[in-house]
C-alpha cells in the first residue's frame, strides 16, 4: 500500500497537479486583503464561537437559514408546474422544521449525556460515569477535552438519528406537509 502511494506521489502527473493546486491556493490568498482585527469584543466573539458553537447550534443555524433559502428556491423552480411547486414548498418547510427540531434536541441531549458519562476517574466517581473518557485524561477543563465531548456527542446523535429519521422525522414531515397543503387549499 505504501509503495503504491509512494509511486503515485512521485509521478509527474501528481506533482503537476499538486503544483497547480498550490499555485491556485497562493493566488487565492494573494487576492485576499490583509486584515488585522483589533476590536476586543469582536475577537472574543470569534473565540467564543470556536469554543462553544458545537454541532447542535450549527444545526439550528442551518435550519433557520434553510427556512429562508430553500422554500424560495422551490417556489421559483420554473421547470415544474405550479401545483408541484406548491407541494414542493410545503414539503420543504415541513422537512426543515422536523429535521431541525429533532436534529437539535438529539444532538443537544447526546452532547449533554456524553458530558455526564465522560468524567475524570476518581474515588467518588462510579465507573459508568467514565465510560466515554479516553485513557490518560486527567483534566476535564481543557478545550481539547470539551471539543472531544462535542465530537463524541455528535457521533452518538448521528447513530440515534438513523432511527429517529424514520420514527420521528418522516411521519412528522408527512403530517406537517399535509397540514400546510390543507391550509393553502383553505386559503383558496
Amino acid at each position: 500500500m505504501t509503495s503504491v502511494r509512494t509511486y503515485i506521489i512521485n509521478t509527474s502527473l501528481y506533482k503537476g497537479v499538486q503544483k497547480s493546486v498550490r499555485y491556485v491556493k497562493q493566488k487565492g490568498l494573494d487576492v485576499m486583503p490583509e486584515r488585522i482585527l483589533s476590536g476586543e469584543k469582536f475577537i472574543d466573539g470569534i473565540k467564543y464561537i470556536g469554543k462553544n458553537f458545537s454541532s447542535d447550534k450549527q444545526r439550528v443555524a442551518l435550519g433557520l437559514t434553510a427556512l429562508v433559502t430553500q422554500p424560495y428556491i422551490d417556489a421559483h423552480n420554473k421547470r415544474v408546474d405550479e401545483q408541484t411547486r406548491k407541494v414542493s414548498v410545503a414539503k420543504t418547510v415541513a422537512k426543515i422544521i422536523a429535521g431541525t427540531l429533532t436534529g437539535f434536541f438529539i444532538r443537544y441531549g447526546c452532547i449533554k449525556g456524553i458530558k455526564a458519562l465522560s468524567q475524570i476517574p476518581g474515588k467518588n466517581v462510579p465507573k459508568w460515569k467514565t465510560l466515554f473518557t479516553p485513557k490518560g485524561i486527567k483534566d476535564n477543563t481543557t478545550e481539547a477535552f470539551e471539543q472531544y465531548r462535542n465530537a463524541m456527542g455528535t457521533v452518538a446523535a448521528l447513530v440515534i438519528m438513523l432511527f429517529t429519521n424514520f420514527l420521528i422525522d418522516a411521519p412528522l414531515t408527512k403530517f406537517m406537509t399535509n397540514a400546510f397543503m390543507k391550509k393553502m387549499e383553505d386559503k383558496k
Binding site: G50, A144, N150, V155
Partner: peptide
C-alpha cells in the same frame, strides 16, 4: 475510537 476522536477533533472543532 475514543483516542482517535480526542486526537483528531480535540484541537480541530471546525
Amino acid at each position: 475510537f475514543k483516542a482517535a476522536l480526542y486526537k483528531n477533533y480535540g484541537e480541530n472543532p471546525g
